[in-house]
Design a binder for these strands. Structure first.
Ligand SMILES: [Zn+2]
Ligand SMILES: [Zn+2]
Ligand SMILES: [Zn+2]
Ligand SMILES: [Zn+2]
Lengths: 139, 139
DNA sequence: GAACACCCTGTAGCGGCTACAGGGTCAAGG
DNA sequence: CCTTGACCCTGTAGCCGCTACAGGGTGTTC
């Protein structure tokens, strides 16, 4: 199948597919006589796998590591475990900082009353005032 | 004060300070005879404000808009309100997708038992299997 | 006069795409 | 036969928000 069909089949932009090939994440497919890329079922499989991992917000470098495991199934599984664990750690860290962020934004929003000018805006005052304190009371 | 002192005072890397100047976020300071940047109190104020907004994960483009409000306090505050609202919307969207992500990763981790090879690893099997289904059951 | 801390400009890199520019290929329709 | 259109190719540059050099200049101290 050609690149357009592969994109159709997996819901991936063809520019992205070429990008994955360029960075060595998706193996170069065969070429037709006219130079067009010609993908097979394994490519569909692989690309779907990549996208699934990306949907789990894994960096491409980690996806690459996982693909290596798929290619060499005799390897020990401990590393896979660790990879997921690391990923989970990062996600949780990000999650908690985003929760703190949401709280701050909600508080900020509450500072703004009815129509007035920027000079009298509680949001702006709060932002200016807050930037006078050392960052990170919440730590 | 020189750039190093400003960095000290605000906890911002001097490369970052020069970067902010280059992209027009921080106004160019005066220069000493030898060409060294010479900042004043207003710059400290402004830089602290920028960093505080960044800590709230605002894109620099929005920080710029806020700085415009600070500079023109006669403007209507409605836009400030909207800006914070948009920011909150983005944060919440990201937050809920990260929560879903965390769940998936926890489920994934549970699939891996004791020591075994990648071939028998439940995580890998799950990832491969999941990539066969159309993405986004959760939507 | 040499070591050191500081400063300057400019360029290139990161990740993960996205968007061109400037071409080639091939089937259907006027 | 020729044009239109859909598809494909390569290569380069841009996005964000930094970060890291390379290759220099300045100014104080021993
Ligand atoms: Zn207001
Ligand atoms: Zn102030
Ligand atoms: Zn396992
Ligand atoms: Zn399969």
């Amino acid at each position: 199948m050609r690149i357009g069909e592969l994109g159709q089949a997996t819901g991936v932009d063809i520019e992205t597919i070429r990008h994955y090939e360029k960075i060595g994440l998706l193996s170069p497919p065969a070429r037709e006589a006219n130079g067009y890329r010609n993908y097979d079922a394994a490519h569909v499989e692989r690309l779907a796998f990549i996208r699934h991992c990306r949907a789990l917000d894994m960096p491409l470098a980690e996806v690459k590591r996982l693909l290596d495991f798929v290619a060499h199934p005799e390897a020990d599984c401990g590393d896979i475990n660790r990879l997921i664990e690391e990923q989970l750690g990062r996600v949780r860290e990000r999650l908690s900082s985003m929760q703190a962020l949401e709280k701050q934004l909600v508080a900020l929003r509450a500072r703004c009353g009815e129509n007035h000018t920027a000079r009298e805006c509680g949001i702006l005052h709060e932002l200016v005032a807050a930037s006078h304190e050392p960052e990170g009371r919440q730590r």
